[in-house]
């Protein structure tokens, strides 16, 4: 739900931009959380919702991209564009979130 809404919002956002070649929405800020988005050159979006005071989200997003390419894409039994149901992916994602949580002052909410 959130993903598909954000996807459209992102597309509209990048079209509305007065500058050509806008990167699209990288961050949405509210009082209680920040939504960070990282779009790869292949067009995949990674979205993290985190406490507004949480630092280091950018490197966390890059890390998640690595985890995705390692534990989803390199698993020969994972089918492209399907939901990721890979144990190793979940484990490593959880680990990365824990590391980010410890590094930053407050915890990200996935």
């Amino acid at each position: 739900m959130l993903a598909s809404m954000f996807h459209s919002l992102f597309a509209i956002g990048s079209q509305l931009s007065p500058e050509l070649g806008s990167s699209g929405i990288e961050m949405l800020e509210t009082d209680t959380f920040k939504l960070h988005c990282f779009q790869t050159l292949t067009g995949i979006k990674f979205v993290v919702l985190a406490d507004p005071r949480q630092a280091g989200i950018e490197s966390l997003l890059r890390k998640i991209y690595e985890i995705y390419s390692d534990f989803a894409l390199k698993n020969p039994f994972y089918s492209l564009e399907m939901p990721i149901r890979c144990e190793l992916f979940d484990q490593n994602l959880k680990l990365a979130l824990e590391v980010a949580e410890k590094a930053g002052p407050f915890g990200p909410g996935s």
Partner: peptide
Amino acid sequence: GVRLIEDFLARSNVGR
């Protein structure tokens, strides 16, 4: 190739 490209981009930090 369609899978490896993500690994390549994630690790190499090459831009467009």
